[in-house]
Design a binder for these strands. Structure first.
Lengths: 347, 347
DNA sequence: AAAAAAAATGTGCTCGAGCACATTTTTTAA
DNA sequence: TTAAAAAATGTGCTCGAGCACATTTTTTTT
């Protein structure tokens, strides 16, 4: 009933535990006879090494750095801190040291600077939010040169030496948004895709979401909707929105490709514009408020907290127990309404 | 940089590690002077015991039994096996032995028999699907008498000596179903709540779901929907459904309170009845088929796999690392459409 | 056949927590 | 003041894997 140990196997095979160890780890220096004796026993009983003992022996300290945007610049990133905190609480007692580093998401230079700093620290692994494409490729290369394991979350880079990624399928996420809006809006009406603040051309996530969104409506030709894309910046937002909603355009639904959807909702509320269906991303407090007010109809949950936590878990289990890190871990795309919201926030 | 050990603390405090151990575990037999010396050091540095070493020492074998319905009787329970398999793979190398036991969900006697068997085995813990109220109370009492820890999943029993529960808020789940149907159906139409197969009076989950569903529509009086409840059994299902759909009743939506929703969908497809919105539970293959055919509009994901896996994880972490088991762990209530379905099944 | 080299095998310590037991110090009783 | 009892403190072994090093066995060379 008790799990066999190396010692047990050694006794059964009539050899010493050193020999068993050499067979198991293929370290050679074993006679054919001994090899067969041990292998016979190994095939008979199902030996699984005690992972506690194994990693106790390799009592190395592991250092993992998390590089992510400062939530003061964009509240989307706030939940990541909770994910980090949870991982810290869970893993420090296993000798893992997790340390966050923040950069300014609007400033490429700060991204580069922070990564240089981390590179100098030379941790065992880095979990990275790769916001800037070209710069990420460069920095990842350097990490790899220094034998630092790199995992990424949130943004997926197509070409990359290191493949570990935790996030969502953004194309599909766009399709889901489209299908939900489709349920709510009238035939022959206009749907607006709104990109707020970020530089659309450099934001692959936004592009992917738009592609997915358009793909859905392309495949549902019979409903004959008009899809228009808008790139808005914060400074002249009100004017632009006036232009969008107060002209004769028959806009029945809006898809905001980021967590900034609350800005649209705030505008609609302030101007008492009703009947327009709104869908956007993420459970920011501002968004939740408008979801409960039924100004926002759906939110898609990108679960940044879980992304970070899972990314860290993979790294820790790799170091401690030698588990493989999945190349691509795509999280479920949760549909949030004012009704099921609570079940996501309480846990 | 390295985590301090008991030995380090002993050296810093100028005592032996035995004394440090006694202070940490409040085992007494420590002079005031020594106690203060050790405590001073403990307050200065942040000591967290190495959990690997701790649980290696307590190298007890743990035995956990899972008692759940046989999926041959109801496919809803099938994913639980995956959850068990995953837990087995993850935890056997930590010396945890997990063993499933199946009963017939339509037969109270088999429930009692299986639990008696498990009781005789006397494992360290039982994870239980408490389908039958009265019988569960009795058996749980016996488990507790024998110092066997009991956790439950899927069904929540209100009054209970042991509180550990993993599942969903079923009242809320009913409300969510209502709100989704509400989006899709016409005003002043009739909505049917359909209970299939199970004995409604003995099924608290079904009752909770119905309560939640009705509660939502009660709070949205202006839409003026008629809600009707039906209890159908498998044998005369077709007749009953003929009666429901082919009479003059203006039924625009159906809420099925279990995973048996595919039966309604199959009927609608066979009889080419269109335009009726359908919502039900769980990602059975049969349900998924009809979801992709757009006969079923929404499925609510009860995530039985995750329920079992999480329940087992709690027990294992309690045994190995002394973590507390949460009294009530309510999982998110996932809304599934044909679009986001895939993101839930691939992971 | 003996010595030297190479290969195979076994031994014993480590990791850190925890606990039983041995030893030392302090307190109490006579 | 000394002996006995009680309290405090320290020591050393255990858990299982892993690995360096010591020891034994086999093979090769002279």
């Amino acid at each position: 009933m008790k799990t066999p140990t190396i010692k047990d196997i050694a006794k059964l095979a009539g050899v010493s535990k050193g020999t068993v160890d050499r067979v198991i780890h293929k370290r050679g220096k074993v006679s054919k006879k001994a090899f067969e004796k041990v292998n016979t026993v190994l095939n008979e009983i199902n030996y699984t090494p005690n992972l506690l003992a194994r990693s106790l022996k390799n009592t190395k300290k592991y250092h993992i750095c998390v590089v992510l945007p400062d939530f003061k610049e964009d509240l989307f990133w706030f939940p990541c801190n909770e994910g980090i905190t949870e991982a810290v609480n869970e893993f420090t007692s296993f000798g893992v040291f997790i340390e966050p580093f923040f950069f300014n998401p609007t400033d490429i230079q700060s991204f580069i600077a922070v990564n240089k700093k981390v590179l100098k620290i030379a941790p065992d692994a880095v979990l990275l939010a790769p916001l800037f494409y070209k710069e990420t490729l460069q920095i990842v290369e350097k990490y790899v040169d220094n034998n630092i394991i790199v995992s990424k979350f949130n943004n997926q880079l197509e070409i990359d030496a290191t493949k570990n990624f935790v996030g969502q399928d953004l194309f599909k996420s766009g399709r889901i948004a489209a299908s939900l809006l489709h349920m709510l809006i009238d035939k022959n009406s206009t749907v607006a895709i709104v990109h707020i603040d970020e530089d659309f051309n450099n934001s692959i996530p936004m592009q992917e979401k738009e592609k997915g969104f358009r793909n859905y409506f392309d495949q549902n030709k019979k409903t004959n909707h008009t899809i228009e894309t808008f790139n808005f910046h914060q400074n002249n937002l009100t004017n632009k929105l006036d232009n969008l909603f107060k002209t004769s355009k028959n806009v029945s639904g809006v898809f905001v490709t980021t967590s900034k959807v609350y800005k649209i909702a705030a505008y609609l509320k302030k101007n008492k514009i009703e009947g327009i269906k709104v869908i956007g991303y993420d459970l920011l407090n501002e968004n939740i408020k408008h979801l409960n007010d039924h100004i926002i109809d759906f939110l898609i949950h990108q679960n940044p907290k879980k992304q970070v936590y899972l990314g860290l878990t993979y790294l820790v289990e790799y170091f401690l127990f030698g588990k493989e890190i999945p190349e691509k871990s795509l999280l479920p795309i949760d549909i949030i309404t004012s009704e099921n919201l609570e079940t996501y926030t309480v846990v």
